[in-house]
Design a protein around this nucleic acid. Structure first.
Lengths: 376, 376
DNA sequence: CTATGTTATGCAACCGGTTGCACGTCAAGG
DNA sequence: CCTTGACGTGCAACCGGTTGCATAACATAG
């Protein structure tokens, strides 16, 4: 066995182990290798047909339309198939039927905690209908997203794009060739499910206004994100309704680091409350602020979005909660509906959100927060 | 536009919107529908061949072996292809070449924060080689995992199983038909990458011993998890080395809830330190313990594994850190190596781990922790 | 006993690419 | 001038299924 500890780069390790493993193949391993892909190339329908003494067509029907055949024939074929270890070939089937039994799911960032529950729910929903799901990570880039979609399109029956960064034109282009649903992106004529955070954001602003806050910073997310546009708009309208003054600070990508990075801008604004595009950003902001000796929520209140951290932060984060898994399930369900019945149209499902008040919001301090104690 | 707020079950909403959307299709939407899938069924190679006045073979070669053709021929064909919007058909290609350009990645639980970084890294690594990746969620069940693998196998070139719950026999079975790598599962003869947490666990026990702790609880994870077996073994050997008494408490699945559930057992054990299978479990334990009025780390020290929560908990969690993304990248890289060069063997890459000391560990209290203050 | 179904199965074409082999052209070598 | 080889391209078979149509067997009705 080869052991390499603490390898830093995949490339280097790939080279290493390959170089090393030429030798020491225990006999069992060698025989295992002999098995591998050396056995006849997997039984096909023709093999089964021969073994069961019927035609290819009959074998095919035994799997797809059993009631068209004699019961004992079907039984015999299935038995034979099991014995020889036959597994139908998806690709071949897709070629003649046009039905691949696959769907694609594309998200901006798998590692952002907003998405995993959504992915999981979508995956399991697809699984219930025996669909396989391709996962794509667009890395917040529309080019990457477009490339992925293009690569997927020839082997899927439908696509679900989550928080798509693509232009409306590209989305329509793709939707024209394959059934496509959007999650957290709002384009007329394309079926979509939306998490309406404007409700929760509005609640949050009412909550802050109640606490006496008058100056708010909204830390925005990706410009091409529908959720961001919607949240910003909700902040704007909330500002009017509750007579608050709003400053917008931009964090390009939603992440812990982005949050930390915008802390100076936040403190410079003289605001007493912060609404962040998402919890990750909010968390970064919290630690950044704490590092500068400003207390939360004593001097500044903070509200996040998405409720993906639970009560794990300290102080526990007040946030706008939604059920992203629900969006995933609903989106996939919608897509599967489209695949079964052509009866689709301008469907739009809206899931609502609500404010969860925890411990990062408190009444406005008497004086505006001091400048950070430390330098920089 | 149809709006349905606060829908609870996907099924019901699917029915709803379908019922509702028969009407109100704005004209633009209607025309969009007309486009959809109504246009000729996507241009094929034959279409391009006709348009470029060459044979199918030539078009094929223009894409796959351009240097076999005259340069101007290639240029013309590519141009024509672009014009008619031709996109090669993965499935058809796979049928004749046997190369699908797909790989499968199966994990126990997408939503467990240990996996998303790994998934993301694996996905992006595959993407660099223009591979599409299927994602499977085994839901911690070997049956589900087996089903997924079976479904994937006919349309992928290789598989990566993360923390597989399958029996060794099933894994060998699958490995015999397709290149397969394991992540966090150790089977001789099957290429694998392992995160060796025994190092970190040992460090953790040394750390606790330094602090004077003599009685430890190990909260175990899934029995079929290799990581769990490894960690438990490391705890056992550490117990010997540092003369600690160890109790094992079982949490079947690694989750926040499981952690909370085992708190009574932990407190009953009279131990002064806890090592949890993973951070999620540790987090559950922390809040459960806090709820009972026992202080961390004052009365009980807690150590997690995986370091997926960062410093977000309060107190921030001491934990055994690893880079799961590195494992994902290395695993996928290894798989791609196998696909390119048949030169594979008994490869085994081991990534190491280290202890990150934060604020949930402290010297052993003078007296063993009291029973919980509240009832139950 | 023949006309008419009904049911179970086989034949062969087709899905959209890939590829071994054959063919034609043109240039260099004998 | 004729061979020989390299080069560029086309033909046709093949990958592993699906499916419309034909056919054979058998039952029922006229």
């Amino acid at each position: 066995m080869i052991v390499i500890n603490c390898v830093k780069r995949a490339m280097s390790l790939a080279i290493h182990h390959r170089a090393l493993l030429i030798h020491n193949l225990p006999t069992e391993s060698t025989s295992a290798m002999a098995d591998k892909n050396t056995d006849r190339p997997a039984p096909t329908m023709a093999d089964v047909a021969r073994a069961a003494d019927v035609s290819k067509s009959t074998v095919s029907r035994a799997f797809t339309q059993p009631n068209m055949l004699g019961v004992e024939t079907v039984d015999r074929i299935l038995e034979v198939a099991r014995l020889v270890g036959y597994v139908p070939n998806h690709a071949a089937r897709a070629l003649s039927t046009g039905r691949h039994g696959n769907v694609a799911l594309v998200v901006p960032d798998v590692a952002n905690p907003f998405f995993p529950p959504l992915i999981r729910a979508a995956q399991m929903e697809a699984d219930r209908s025996n669909f396989c799901v391709f996962l794509g990570n667009s890395d917040e880039s529309w080019r990457q997203e477009d490339k992925l979609v293009e690569r997927f399109v020839s082997q899927v029956e439908g696509l679900a794009l989550v928080a798509s960064r693509l232009s409306e034109e590209r989305i329509r282009h793709h939707a024209a060739k394959r059934p496509l649903v959007l999650i957290n992106r709002d384009i007329r004529g394309i079926p979509r499910v939306l998490i309406d955070s404007s409700i929760g954001v509005n609640d949050a602003m009412a909550h802050l206004a109640d606490l006496g806050h008058e100056r708010l910073v909204y830390v925005s997310g990706p410009a091409s994100s529908w959720a961001n546009q919607q949240r910003r708009a909700a902040v704007r309208s909330g500002a009017k309704a509750y007579h608050m003054e709003v400053t917008i600070v931009a964090a390009k990508v939603p992440s812990y680091e982005s949050g930390r990075a915008v802390v100076p801008d936040i403190l410079a604004s003289n605001a007493t409350a912060v609404l962040a595009f998402d919890d990750l950003t909010a968390q970064g902001i919290m630690t950044g602020i704490a590092d500068r000796g400003v207390s939360v929520p004593g001097q500044i209140s903070i509200v996040g979005c998405d409720d993906v951290l639970g009560a794990a932060t300290y102080p526990s984060l007040t946030t706008v909660s939604n059920r992203s898994d629900e969006a995933g399930r609903a989106g996939m369900s919608l897509l599967l509906d489209m695949l079964n019945s052509r009866a689709v149209g301008d469907a739009c499902l809206v899931l609502d959100t609500h404010l969860v008040v925890r411990n990062t919001t408190a009444p406005k301090p008497n004086r505006a927060p001091r400048r950070p104690a430390g330098a920089d």
